[in-house]
């Protein structure tokens, strides 16, 4: 049976990503910012400063909203400072964390087709006896693997930082909570796949990498919405909600995957992208 993807193409794309300074810097800098600096800053602040005073009235309001919710029992035994830290680590940070796979996946996938076009190698690929859907699916695989690995590594590093810096405050390991576990096992892979699929389709249609990034960047907006919703106390991202969102994204992914699998128009791709 013929395989769905070309191993050679996936291997080449992965090598390409590792050797591209821009892509590599994005894949290192973004995780450091969201999974090292942010949690380290918060945990450090909780250890060395008066977090209650820094958070102010708004922070106390957020804690009271949370304490009054169904998830309030998890933090009822904690002090106000512990509650603030706990909420940030388990409710705010996961949303921020999602930006890691999203931005890395967007950077890699947006480059997939238009990058080949800009380097004048897409012609070579289209002249090869490889079907267009195999080409697309190989690009999907090659664009999925790096952000997925980055998200796993980021998750582990983030966990170590939270537990090491959080232990003096909590006297117990607070990471990973159920929220984090469903995030890393369900929502993050689904979101990576969504970003990859959307950006690959965009990348096959636009003229430049810059254009692909500009259009693909819109996908960050729902995550920003989620963050705003949580900070404003509109909703809290619990396990149930994360699972429901994951399921929704899965369905969208299945539709996109189905559409890409059927895509086999070499003529349109060639005439649009090669001059």
């Amino acid at each position: 049976m013929e395989s769905f993807i070309s191993k050679a193409l996936v291997k080449k794309d992965l090598t390409d990503i590792v050797r591209s300074k821009t892509l590599l810097i994005t894949m290192i800098a973004i995780p450091i910012l969201f999974t090292v600096l942010f949690p380290a800053l918060l945990m450090g602040s909780a250890l060395f400063f008066d977090l209650e005073e820094i958070a102010g009235e708004d922070g106390r309001k957020l804690v009271s909203v949370f304490a009054g919710s169904s998830m309030g029992s998890a933090v009822s035994a904690y002090s106000l400072e512990q509650q603030m830290t706990y909420i940030f680590i388990n409710y705010m940070l996961p949303t921020l964390f999602l930006l890691v796979p999203i931005i890395t996946a967007m950077t890699v996938a947006a480059n997939s087709f238009v990058g080949e076009k800009e380097r004048r190698t897409l012609e070579s690929l289209l002249f090869a006896p490889v079907s267009i859907h195999k080409l697309f699916l190989s690009k999907v695989a090659a664009s999925f693997i790096p952000p997925f690995l980055v998200s796993i590594i980021s998750f582990l590093v983030c966990g170590i930082i939270i537990n090491v810096l959080g232990y003096p405050l909590f006297r117990e390991l607070i990471f990973p909570s159920a929220n984090w576990i469903v995030l890393i096992t369900c929502l993050s892979p689904m979101v990576i796949l969504l970003v990859v699929l959307v950006n690959i389709v965009i990348s096959s249609k636009v003229k430049t990498y810059q254009e692909a990034q500009n259009i693909g960047g819109v996908i960050v907006l729902p995550v920003v919405g989620m963050l705003v919703g949580q900070i404003s106390g509109l909703f809290l991202l619990g396990v149930g909600l994360i699972l429901i969102i994951s399921l929704g994204v899965l369905l969208v992914n299945l539709m996109l995957w189905h559409r890409i699998s059927k895509h086999n128009d070499r003529f349109a791709l060639f005439e649009k992208q090669i001059h």
Binding site: S6, K7, A8, L9, K11, K12, T15, D16, R19, S20, R119, R120, T121, E123, S124, L125, F127, A128, P129, V130
Partner: peptide, 28 residues
């Protein structure tokens, strides 16, 4: 068919050998 296009269509960030290995994989 084998083709040499005007732009050569090679991957500049890959070595000569890696280029050939990649296309060998692509052409089976």
């Amino acid at each position: 068919s084998g083709i040499v296009t005007e732009s050569a269509g090679l991957y500049h960030q890959l070595s000569g050998k890696e280029n050939l290995e990649f296309f060998a994989g692509l052409y089976g």
